[in-house]
Design a protein around this nucleic acid. Structure first.
Lengths: 229, 229
DNA sequence: TAGCGTAAGATTGGATCCAATCAACGGATG
DNA sequence: CATCCGTTGATTGGATCCAATCTTACGCTA
């Protein structure tokens, strides 16, 4: 409570889930805070401060930071500590390149095996996004919609990687939503992808997805160009 | 020293490098042992046993295990411990699907920016592979050759992911080399990829790479089919 | 005899303490 | 006045200890 406006004040563990270990708890809260922008890039993460704030010792904090480092959400330097990874035009392009490689592959594998129930779940997520206004939850719904389309791909490692990259992109999606309206989230693309998946039209769905990703990447690039970053 | 033939006996930290922290040391040795097959899938990794063997306390071991879990090399279950990830036909196909998505993307980005020095380094690695006989070093050279071709891609996150997947594939490459001779490592493909890269022939290089990966995946699939796995 | 509940041991998760390293500051020296 | 160097405080890495949880084995009961 010393410094009045620490970014860590935003750490409100209002997440209702239950965790099996303190490490999982710390990791989940920190991850959510980084992805939704509460903890901006460059924020130093002192172990003792986090431990006090979470009501645990430094050890679960250390392990959580290691996990986040592996997800490229924090940078750790030995004996110097952890810092929230900076976002930049270059990093956005990097994340985009990975998504652009992984998601079409996942979609191709998934479409032939998607069940009506899974397609219905995807449609429900589109409808939920229509009436969602808050940026953080919008990112979550967007993530879940994409993953719903890939859910039948099998290949759990591929899906886990895809989900991680999708989550990383949320940090940019937030800017995207702030700059333009949430219209630009391209609900049309989402509906088109769903329709193509329903029709078992793999090339069509992949084409929409790639265009969807390209547009998102361009929007982020324009944002950084206008911002001088 | 109790049980005579523990798989952990293979942990010979003969790696000459220097590490800044004990955690890095433990992680590097364990990772090498898992990738080269010294620690087969399913091997339980007891923290205390590893700590004693490395001459450190349990804490660096715990952090190293977390890092390896993030790389999908060990599975951790709360209060139950860590186990070396099992290999299987399904997991091989999973890793292959990721490589098949990431590597063509990396190659496409890299070729236009490859320098003569980088191309020369790749060629040197091909020659080194011609005269290498030991399986472990062969895997390392193969990894370094592929990464040499992608080195100019920029996008450090994409490259890091690609390298991690390439390393994961080494666990299968080992079987591959044992079953067939090392001829089947397709040095022809390597030379063709290098030639195409030199000629700035992106579609040609990507086509060779994709066929190269497809053949490797088929070989692994055949191996597992013959083995009943 | 099969099944369930309980108790003991083993193993991991978490807390606390100590050591090593880094950054900042201040004084001496050219 | 700038630079180098030693000292001090802050912070992380590592070791040790305690608590929580899981597994296994044993005994009781139906």
């Amino acid at each position: 409570m010393a410094d009045p406006a620490s970014p860590l004040d935003a750490l409100a563990p209002a997440l209702e889930g239950r965790w099996r270990t303190a490490t999982e708890f710390v990791e989940a809260v920190l991850k959510a805070a980084i992805l939704d922008g509460s903890l901006p890039g460059g924020t130093p993460l002192r172990q003792e401060e986090l431990a006090e704030r979470f009501g645990v010792s430094r050890m679960p904090v250390r392990e959580a930071l290691r996990q986040l480092e592996a997800q490229a959400l924090v940078d750790m330097v030995p004996h110097r500590g952890a810092v929230v990874t900076e976002i930049s035009a270059a990093d956005a392009a990097d994340t985009y390149a990975i998504r652009r490689a992984l998601e079409p592959a996942a979609l191709r594998l998934s479409i032939p095996r998607l069940t009506p129930a899974q397609l219905g779940a995807a449609e429900a997520l589109i409808l939920a996004m229509d009436s969602e206004t808050e940026a953080g939850r919008m990112g979550l719904l967007n993530r879940r919609f994409h993953m719903a389309l890939y859910a039948a791909a099998g290949h759990p490692r591929l899906l886990a990687l895809t989900e991680a990259q999708l989550a990383a992109f949320d940090r940019y999606l937030r800017f995207h939503l702030a700059a333009h309206g949430r219209e630009h989230l391209s609900q049309q693309d989402h509906r088109a992808m769903l329709a193509a998946a329903r029709a078992q039209d793999i090339p069509g769905a992949v084409a929409v997805l790639e265009a969807h990703l390209d547009r998102a990447a361009e929007a982020i690039a324009r944002f950084f160009a206008a911002r001088g970053g």
